[in-house]
Amino acid sequence: MSALAATVAGVALLVGYKPTPAGSASPSPTPPPRIAVSDDDAPVGAPAPARTPAPTSAPVAVAQSGGTKTVTGKTVDTIFGQVQVRVTIQGKRIVDVQPLQLPFDRARSAYISQVAGPMLRSEAIQAQSANIDVISGATYTSMAYGQSLQSALQNN
């Protein structure tokens, strides 16, 4: 740390690393990011189905059309409420992760759900495409999110 009196060296708008991937099951002009679902070298921030214990309950609802499959993860309880996600997979790629349930059970959860929905969603996808080992930030509900996601992938 320098001894500069001025402590704030930079102020900038947050800049994302990539344009928003087209996270949709329908055909898209921009290919979604390649994500190896079963890659042993997947970064830690990513779900790694092969290395984690199986969830205690099976996921539900696999729907398939053409080469696209959607898998719904199990519902996971958190201190804020229940979390459940649905994953859309094309071949070996995750192309979309959609939260089906996020907590609403407390007053502050209204805020959490409002803000955390898209944020949680970014974790599952960006963590892989950005090649991150680990993410720094609050993770209470994202743990449940990850568990639901894993249960979906394991039963893919």
């Binding site: 928003t20 970014s122 993410i135």
Partner: peptide, 19 residues
């Protein structure tokens, strides 16, 4: 080096920076 993403608080599919 290890790659540590700083969670973007709002935007989907983004981390704010990588440490």
């Amino acid at each position: 080096p290890w790659r540590i993403g700083i969670r973007h608080p709002v935007e989907r599919d983004k981390v704010a920076r990588v440490v």
